[in-house]
Design a protein around this nucleic acid. Structure first.
Lengths: 239, 239
DNA sequence: CTAAAAAAAGAGCGAGCGTTCGTTTTTTAT
DNA sequence: ATAAAAAACGAACGCTCGCTCTTTTTTTAG
């Protein structure tokens, strides 16, 4: 039994601290990317000013929304929190919906990067580790963004609501694909879909309920390892 | 290994169909209970009229809210959907917030009942089955209620937001308690807290993302059994 | 230094919000 | 049958919303 376990569970572990070092989306870089990707939603033409205002607007949004919700957050609340004027805010984001749309774009961007990185790894066990930890650690580093997209999907225009649901579907589907690769006789373990659903759910748990995790930093590594072990056990074990 | 599996996994299975037969909260009963428990929030004094209006109001709410959110649902949307007048709606619920507060009360009521039923079972394995299936099946039968409370917690007055978070904490805590009872040497398996969190997360998955589950009815029993098997495996296995 | 361009300011607009309240209709009890 | 009580009605109220637009300030380029 012990050897079976060792076969299944990856031996080396990518920690949160290591991942953070190579993370390509710190605040400055992220806003710069969002500015370039969403020119048609943003009224300001010079990056310097756009990034400065976007930073203020999203910081304020992420402070207000978890308490009262996006619909209940008025633009006047936003003015008070950012210190900007109505004109400044509207020059930056053009209209209120665009705040939510840009959040969706940010999360989509990061998720696509995670999948790409994982797919570059030929060994499926290591690829799965990169994928799961990529989602888990990224969604923690960008917690307000991931939380907002999940909690405020219904505040998005309908087309963008569908994008958001499809993003979740594709996340499960990527995980499921790697799990299926690991299952030689898929009939005998848990269904790959079931395991993949569990995995994503455990990832979401952390960024959706921050009030449950006043994180002592180490705990996220433990959590990640437990998740991966549980996944591998579910893949390997027959009964 | 096979015998270990059999020790861990319960042999008899309570199905969704069986559970539904004994379920004490069909529409009529639930509204009647809510009327009695929330007299001070409800303006109508005769149960017959209160129940008829509450039914209309909550059905309409559960139709509108998943698409646009509670804050974006106006009372005029509600009038159109219910066929009631402004006066009728306000006589029934007194103010808009009370809709959300009454939903919180309903979910709390049902959850307390589930815990009570599970605790009446002396064998911890059977108690765990009752608890997990109680949550899973109840939250499916009352999907709109459970979904609303999770998705609209931020629309509640602050005191009630805390109630909602505490309800989730107590759910994890009840599951964790039974799991700890099953673990003879707790140090060697997954932490009880981790397993309990996973369990609740898997329950929430089903009522939070109905768009993923156009249920063929049998699938929920399978899902429940997979969840319980996974829990028992996580409890029993050492590594 | 200066003139053109870009960004920031904030008063004001119409629409729609939750809620109220005087009145009418329905139900209940005698 | 009747009068009192309860429920239902819906126009109107005050307010706040997202957004626009003219004016002012700051930045940039020659």
């Amino acid at each position: 039994m012990a050897s079976m376990t060792e076969e299944c569970v990856p031996l080396r572990a990518l920690t949160f601290a290591e991942f953070k070092k190579g993370f390509a989306y710190d605040e400055e870089q992220l806003y710069s990317l969002l500015f370039k990707r969403n020119q048609e939603l943003i009224g300001i033409r010079r990056e310097k000013f756009a990034v400065r205002n976007l930073k203020k607007i999203f910081r304020a949004t992420f402070k207000l929304v978890p308490k009262i919700g996006f619909q209940a957050m008025s633009l006047r609340d936003l003015l008070a929190e950012t210190g900007l004027s109505m004109g400044g805010v509207y020059l930056t984001i053009t209209n209120k919906d665009n705040i939510a749309i840009i959040v969706k774009d940010a999360v989509t961007l990061v998720c696509e990067d995670i999948v790409e990185t994982a797919k570059a790894e030929p060994d499926p066990t290591l690829a799965l580790e990169r994928l799961i930890k990529g989602y888990l650690y990224s969604s923690l580093l960008l917690q307000p963004w991931f939380y907002f997209l999940y909690a405020e999907t219904r505040s998005l225009p309908l087309e963008h609501q569908n994008d958001s649901k499809n993003l979740e579907r594709s996340q499960v589907s990527e995980i499921k694909g790697l799990i299926a690769e690991l299952q030689e006789k898929p009939q005998q373990g848990y269904p790959a879909e079931f395991i993949a659903t569990m995995a994503l759910t455990m990832i979401q748990e952390r960024y959706l309920k921050p009030w449950k995790y006043k994180q002592p930093a180490a705990s996220i590594d433990e959590y990640a390892e437990n998740c991966l072990r549980l996944i591998h056990h579910s893949v390997c074990h027959y009964w």
